[in-house]
Design a protein around this nucleic acid. Sequence first.
DNA 1: TCTGGGGTCCTAGGACCC
DNA 2: TCTGGGGTCCTAGGACCC
Length: 415
Amino acid sequence: METTATILHADLDAFYASVEQLLDPSLRGKPIAVGGGVVLAASYEARAFGVRGGMPGRTARELCPQLIFVGGNFSHYQRLGDAAIKVLDDFTPLVERISIDEAFADVAGCTHLFGSPQEIATTIRRRVRAELGLPISIGVARTKHLAKIASQVAKPDGLVVVDPGSELAFLHDLPVGLMWGVGPATRARLAEIGVETIGQLARTHSGALTRLLGPAAGEKLSALSWNRDPRKLEAKRRAHSAGAQSALGRKPAVADVIAPTLLHLADRVASRLRAKARPGRTVTVRVRFADLTAVTRSITLDQPISATMMLAEIAGDLVRGVLADHRQEKTISLLAISVSHLEESFELQLELPLGLADEKRRPGTRKGLARFGADRAIDRIRERFGKQAVGYGTVALEAARLVPDKFRELAEKEL
DNA sequence: TCTGGGGTCCTAGGACCC
DNA sequence: TCTGGGGTCCTAGGACCC
């Protein structure tokens, strides 16, 4: 058995809010929220009032009347997030980035150069503070799961090292909600059988867990509660899907609403697929109704696609199918498009004519080729003049958008 | 004017093939 | 001819994470 804890989980604290406080010193020590209509991130001072990410701005203001809303310096978020990850890269190539502000690193191979994992973590925290001006918390443990929990416990602005001898003692007093994969639904189910700590979970008979959560989840949680985490650090993971969604408030389920929204979403998704040369075969749409219940429809094509109009048309067919099955629903609150089954490389799968019938399962038609040219023209204009230079979005759509496109881009995973 | 937007993974049933 | 089992893919839904 591995006897040293060499996996680091590094997590920037209240990232967007910390960046705003860094850029504008007058905001330091104050409750602030990034966003407006919806809270995208909240400072620790705001969290003390119960303000959370994803919360409607109005609710946040009720909880904390002195809350300061700030605009969002999106380009700085990207720059500083990248710079923090780069500090990890200086120690080891084994870095798995999870999101803009979070990454795992395995320092097993570089302790002879830089000292113990604890020393490395301390240096990383000091450098991120000194060079970028941002607080970052780090957990160090033998497994990814435990390192992640340790960094959560370390927050804000702390370091927690769990050495192998004290793993279960550390883990078993903590609430199950800290475990990876335990959200509100699972936590409630576990509470029904009196399980609230990870220790209680560990002592629960596996048969009971399986009955409660199913075989896979039961087995997984049982293993994690004993710190058996099989997951390896994966330095370069590629995305398996790409999607976009748009909350609509409450809109009538009519073509005048649906068609332009789908075109905009298809444009966002398809242009990303083209940019990374990764067309995909499966198109999924999601329609959420007024009561927030949602329905999905998908179709898997014979050939991968990345053309905007083709994607928009297929999505339109799927949405019409949903609405035909739910005729009583007159109002929709969200539309989404996602493409999965992404190809590894565009080079192998150019969308060229195959001489096949012009039907949706075989998108490689002459019509498709003509549109491919139109897409390329748009892509090139955007390369030169920026994303806003040309597109399918209408003015009305722009105004209605709750979350700015710049913010959406931060959440996009590398394809 | 009652909840964003980007993803991942798992489950379960059915179709289809061998 | 009837029956069964295993593997794989597709579809729909759900839970979860940042």
